[in-house]
Amino acid sequence: MKNLVLVLVLAVSLSSVYAQNSSYEDIMKKNIDLLYKASDMSDYQKVANTFEIVANKETANWLPLYYIALTKIYMSYSAKDSDKKDLYLDEAQKFLDKALALNSNESELIVLQGFLHQARISIAPVSRGQKYSGLANSYFDKAEKINSENPRIYYLKGMNVLNMPKMFGGGKENALPLFQKAKEKFDKFEVSNELYPNWGSQGNEKRLNYCQN
């Protein structure tokens, strides 16, 4: 028993030393994992902070910037106050701009730009719906031209359609084919390295079920 305590103490202290000395790959991997598991604002905030630390060091790498922007978009969805929601998106846009300046032709970044515009809609659907859903779609189309195998394009397009009033061609039936297409692409999708964006599959599955019922 006491031995166990000892081992635990050792393990804990070692792991904390390890974490703080870890390499770019390790810290990113761990943090991306934390991002996908995050459930509340304080989790997101910590994750965003860590990505920011990495981005500050890895100034020529678009991935940390991508993940900061993605985290801030999630934060915007989780925030309760509409001013804060916009503020997080403004922040996300700043980091995304930096990332796009490094790699303007990366389909994941362009998809993320569409996702960011999409996030603006939910804050004031009536006044923003038309403008931002159009903007979001134009980025999804652009991303599709660069890499039509990116499943997130169809997943987010589906979300756009799902959330649109029926009158404008929205609703379950119209969104379903997009989620189906996204599923096909998700099933085939292989990341070139572990740190590369690879999210949305579960969400897509959920929407797919919802639309089929």
Binding site: Q20, S22, Y24, N49, I53, N56, K57
Partner: peptide, 9 residues
């Protein structure tokens, strides 16, 4: 966010 400049700490 609390960190040491130019590190991952």
């Amino acid at each position: 966010n609390i960190y040491i400049k130019d590190t991952y700490i």
